[in-house]
C-alpha cells in the first residue's frame, strides 16, 4: 500500500487519495517524472469519479506535462467522454497543442471517439487545426477510413 498518488488515482482509489492529500495537499497537483499529475493519470485510465473528486479538491486541469500533454488530451485519446465533459466545465484551452503533435480533437478523431469529438466541438474545438504532419481532423478521419467520424466533421463544418 505504498503506491504513489498517481497510481492510486489511476486505480480510482478515492479513499487512499483523500488520505494522502489530507496529509499533504501539495500532492494534489504533484507531477511525476514525466510531468503527469494525478488528474492526468485518472483521465488517462478513465477514472471518472476520481477525476471529479480531484477537480473538486482543486486539481488544476490546465497543467501541462513535460511534452505539453494535458488531462483533456488524455481523456480524449482514451474516449472517456464523461471525463472530457467534466474537464470542459473548467477553464481549459480546448485547442491546446502538444509536442506529440496533437490537440484533444485530433486525439479523439484518431481514436474514432465520436462522442468525445462532439463534446469538444460543442466547446469550440478548432476543426482546422492540423497535426504537425499536416493532417486536419477531417483528413485524418478520411485516411483512417472512419466514415461516421468523417460525416460528423463534415456536418459540423456545414453548420459553421
Amino acid at each position: 500500500d505504498n503506491l504513489s498518488i498517481h497510481q492510486l488515482a489511476a486505480h480510482g482509489d478515492i479513499a487512499q487519495v483523500k488520505m494522502h492529500i489530507t496529509c499533504d495537499n501539495s500532492l494534489l497537483n504533484s507531477q511525476d517524472e514525466r510531468g503527469f499529475t494525478p488528474l492526468m493519470w485518472a483521465a488517462a485510465f478513465g477514472e471518472i469519479e476520481m477525476a471529479q473528486f480531484l477537480l473538486e479538491k482543486g486539481a488544476d486541469p490546465k497543467t501541462f506535462a513535460r511534452e505539453r500533454e494535458c488531462a483533456l488530451s488524455l481523456a480524449s485519446a482514451g474516449g472517456f467522454t464523461d471525463i472530457v465533459n467534466i474537464i470542459l466545465k473548467h477553464e481549459v484551452d480546448v485547442n491546446s497543442y502538444d509536442w506529440n503533435g496533437g490537440t484533444p480533437l485530433l486525439y479523439a478523431v484518431r481514436g474514432n471517439h465520436t462522442k468525445c469529438v462532439e463534446a469538444l466541438l460543442r466547446h469550440g474545438a478548432d476543426i482546422t487545426f492540423e497535426a504537425d504532419s499536416g493532417y486536419s481532423p477531417i483528413a485524418l478521419a478520411v485516411a483512417l477510413g472512419y466514415r461516421k467520424m468523417q460525416k460528423l466533421l463534415e456536418d459540423h463544418i456545414l453548420n459553421l
Binding site: 503506491l3 497510481q7 489511476a10 486505480h11 482509489d13 511525476d32 514525466r34 503527469f36 492526468m40 493519470w41 483521465a43 488517462a44 485510465f45 500533454e69 488530451s73 488524455l74 485519446a77 502538444d98 506529440n100 503533435g101 496533437g102 485530433l106 486525439y107 484518431r110 481514436g111 497535426a131 504532419s133 499536416g134 493532417y135 483528413a139 485524418l140 485516411a143 483512417l144
Partner: peptide
C-alpha cells in the same frame, strides 16, 4: 489485494502509419 502497477500514461502518435499528407 495487491494492486498491479499501471504504466505511465502516454498519447498515441496521431499519424503513425499514415502516408505523408
Amino acid at each position: 489485494s495487491q494492486l498491479s502497477l499501471y504504466t505511465s500514461p502516454s498519447l498515441p502518435n496521431i499519424t503513425l502509419g499514415l502516408p505523408a499528407s
